[in-house]
Design a protein around this nucleic acid. Structure first.
Lengths: 226, 226
DNA sequence: ATAATAGTGTCTCTTAGACAATATTTC
DNA sequence: GAAATATTGTCTAAGAGACACTATTAT
């Protein structure tokens, strides 16, 4: 009745207009050569969230102020890892565009991989299922929380935020209706006063994340066209 | 790096117009005399869900066809149990009104306790926090899933279903608007054709749970008056 | 000027919530 | 009939989505 406990990480970011997850390539059996979620054993006297933060730091060099982190679920069926009984407390993390990770120390190459490609390939262990669960959680939370702000920089435009929704949901949103909804959702956005000219066209207002934790009214998903 | 893994249960039901949880009274230290969530160790070669079902059966004699069961979250900070490092995978369950449980074998008295009383008292371990998390999850899921049907019998009336919402949310709902919403939510209810006269007044139609897993449109919480 | 992007206004349709009215039972 | 509960209908206000229009920049 003694179990090994690990913390694995589903870490999402947006790169090149695609939703990507950080994955490591296994270089020893089982599942040698397959992609797996980053993770590791929880240490003695280490909390679960602390372990997740440590993993996050080891993989990306980022601390958790820039990255939203929450528990996803725990996977612990016997047989999910042929080496023994391993209970995995999986955490879900969202970050702005991050640099390509340095090749890991113990693990093999760590890389950002597009989620759609991952889901149509075979991953190590039960990580395909975990990734699916994480994706669904992310999609749902965009609707009723300001989670999308975790994918962009500290100061961002409404268009950048809309882009997050479009990429994660895989839909197209009307820029005008989206603008009205998102600026009308109290506590979601805080204008910084600044403007930007990152692209051509009229400069956009810059915003910061507001202090709301729940969106009311929500940004509904059915708005999709396409 | 070897951890003990338990499965604890937040089991909700409605008794006497109150939301109640099944609790056991500890009869040995630590937290002797305090109320705690029912639970136990996961066995070798036993899945997490299987362990939760086994616990449920041991405590209530019910199998899981009559009870909705889902994973809530995992609590595993060091120090949460003075006896050692214990990682607890907590499951959330909802059932119709159940008989008073037989006094447990190993544990002390098992009893249904009103949730509001529990939350204003000191529970064993971190179970107060866990109960709070479970309550919030239950309240949220009433909005967008047919979860309320798990609290009533197999055949039920709209009024019985409304009562579930009122008790769990602690609000009052307009019977007329509620009726329109719930019967208009596709896939939530299936008319059985039967009628009932459990109370005075005009007999009510009987329904069964439909096959929807997501409510669209949802039964919104802000409808509350009072 | 033209292209490009940002932001506002307007219209229609659906839904939420307040509340009136009707239906069907028990006592 | 009176009381109680079930069910339907009506009205108003708010939000969603379609889409025209104006604003401000680069080239």
């Amino acid at each position: 009745m003694a179990f090994a406990v690990t913390v694995d990480l589903v870490l999402f970011t947006i790169r090149d207009d695609r939703l990507c997850a950080l994955m490591v390539r296994r270089r020893s059996p089982p599942y040698r050569g397959k992609w797996a979620l980053p993770g590791g054993f929880v240490e003695e006297d280490e909390g679960l969230v602390d372990a997740a933060k440590r993993e996050l730091g080891e993989e990306t060099g980022l601390d958790d102020v820039r990255v939203h982190l929450e528990q996803l679920a725990t996977y612990g069926d016997p047989g999910r890892d042929p080496r023994g009984r391993i209970v995995s407390v999986v955490h879900l993390a969202f970050g702005p565009e991050l640099p390509e990770p340095r090749a890991g120390d113990d693990a093999a190459a760590a890389r950002w991989r597009p989620v759609d490609e991952l889901l149509s390939s075979r991953l190590a262990f039960d990580h395909g299922r975990i990734l699916t669960d994480g994706l669904e959680r992310a999609r749902a939370k965009l609707e009723y929380t300001p989670l999308a702000t975790a994918f962009v920089g500290e100061d961002f435009t409404v268009a950048e935020l809309r882009h997050v929704y479009e990429v994660v949901w895989g839909t197209t949103l009307d820029p005008r209706n989206f603008h009205r909804k998102v600026t009308g959702s109290p506590g979601m956005l805080e204008p910084t006063g600044g403007r930007t000219t990152r692209n051509a066209g009229r400069p956009a207002q810059l915003y910061r994340r507001g202090d709301a934790t729940l969106l009311n009214p929500p940004i509904t998903r059915a708005q999709a066209s396409d």
